[in-house]
Design a protein around this nucleic acid. Structure first.
Length: 279
DNA sequence: GATGTATCCTGAATGC
DNA sequence: TGCATTCAGGATACAT
C-alpha cells in the first residue's frame, strides 16, 4: 500500500515521465475514481499541459497550465504507468490520459479505492483530506515539542492517532508498526501517557524511517510499483510488518499480530509493553 | 469535539 | 478440484 515513501517515488517517476506533455484525450472507465463529474474532469484537462508534479502527504498534486491541479490519492493499490498507445491495456485500468505525443498515462487500481479530483491550483486547502493534513515528517516541519503537545491532547491509542494524518502526515499501516517497534512503544498505548522522551524518540524514528524508505524506493508489499515500473527495496528492511511468528530482531520473542482500530497490527510483546490508561 | 465503526472493492488465502 | 468465506486496508460518512 502506498505510504509517503512510495508516493514520493511515484511523484519522482511521474515528474520525469509526463511533465511537458499535453493532454489530447481522457478516457474514464470507472467513474467513482473521479470525484468531479466525468465531463468536468475531461473537458477541464483536454488541451492542458502538465507543468509539474508535487506531493502533500500521500496525495499527488499533478499541476497543469491554466492554474489547474489534479489531486490524486492512490489509497491501497493505485498506480500509474506510462506506456505507448500500442501497449495492450491491462486489467484494472480505470483512467487513461492520452498525450499529443502518442504516449498514455494510465491509472490502475485493482481495488478501485483511489480517488482523483480536479481543482483550481491554490484551492488545495478546500479539499477534504488535504485541508486537515498535519505536518510533513521532515526535520524542518516536524518539531518534537509540538508533537508531544499534540499527543498529550488525545487519550486514544497512539497507532490510530498516527494513522489519521492530522498530526503528522505520510504514515500508513506499515510505517506506523515499524516506527512504534523502533521506538519500543506498544501500539495501544494511550497517546497522552507517552513520556516526552518516548515521543522524542518516536519523532526521530518517524523522520529517519520515512527518509530511509524513500531513499530505498519505498516498500513493495504485493503490488506497489512506481510510475517507471520499478519495485521498491525497503520491504527487505522491515522489522515487524508481516513478520507474525518470526523472532523479534531485538530480543528474539515471536512477533504477534493483533487488531488495533480495525487494522492488522504487528508488534513485539516483550519490547513493546502495553500500558493501560489511568482511570 | 473526540472517538468508534461500517463502507467501498477485489484478489489472495483459507476452509471445507 | 472447486466453491464459499474471510481478510487486507486509507479515508470518509455516520453514529455515539
Amino acid at each position: 500500500m502506498p505510504e509517503l515513501p512510495e508516493v514520493e517515488n511515484v511523484r519522482r517517476g511521474l515528474e520525469q515521465l509526463v511533465v511537458g506533455k499535453t493532454v489530447q484525450a481522457i478516457e474514464i472507465r470507472w467513474s467513482k475514481i473521479i470525484s468531479n463529474p466525468d465531463d468536468v474532469f475531461v473537458e477541464g484537462l483536454v488541451g492542458r499541459q502538465i507543468i509539474g508534479v508535487d506531493r502533500r502527504g500521500k496525495y499527488l498534486l499533478i499541476r497543469f497550465d491554466q492554474n489547474l491541479t489534479v489531486v490524486s490519492h492512490l489509497r491501497m493499490e493505485g498506480k500509474y504507468e506510462v506506456d505507448d498507445q500500442s501497449v495492450p491495456m491491462t486489467k484494472h485500468t480505470h483512467v487513461i490520459w492520452t498525450f499529443t505525443d502518442g504516449q498514455q498515462l494510465r491509472y490502475l487500481d485493482s481495488r478501485k479505492f483511489g480517488r482523483m479530483l480536479l481543482i483550481e491550483t491554490g484551492q488545495e486547502n478546500t479539499v477534504s483530506g488535504l485541508k486537515d493534513l498535519g505536518v510533513e515528517p521532515t526535520p524542518t516541519t516536524f518539531k518534537k515539542t509540538a508533537f508531544y503537545q499534540a499527543l498529550q491532547k488525545h487519550k486514544k491509542a497512539i497507532k490510530p492517532l498516527l494513522l489519521d494524518q492530522k498530526i503528522v502526515t505520510g504514515l500508513g499501516n506499515i510505517y506506523v508498526d515499524e516506527t512504534l517497534w523502533l521506538s519500543q512503544i506498544h501500539p495501544e498505548t494511550p497517546a497522552n501517557l507517552l513520556t516526552k522522551a518516548e515521543t522524542d524518540r518516536l519523532h526521530d524514528e518517524i523522520i529517519t524511517e520515512l527518509e530511509l524508505a524513500t531513499n530505498n524506493g519505498g516498500t513493495t508489499v504485493n503490488t506497489f510499483l512506481n510510475a517507471a515500473g520499478h519495485a521498491g527495496a525497503f520491504q527487505d528492511m522491515l522489522h515487524v510488518y508481516g513478520k507474525k511468528g518470526q523472532p523479534c530482531d531485538r530480543c528474539q520473542t515471536p512477533i504477534e499480530k493483533i487488531k488495533v482500530a480495525q487494522r492488522g497490527t504487528h508488534f513485539c510483546p516483550r519490547c513493546q509493553i502495553k500500558r493501560e490508561a489511568v482511570q
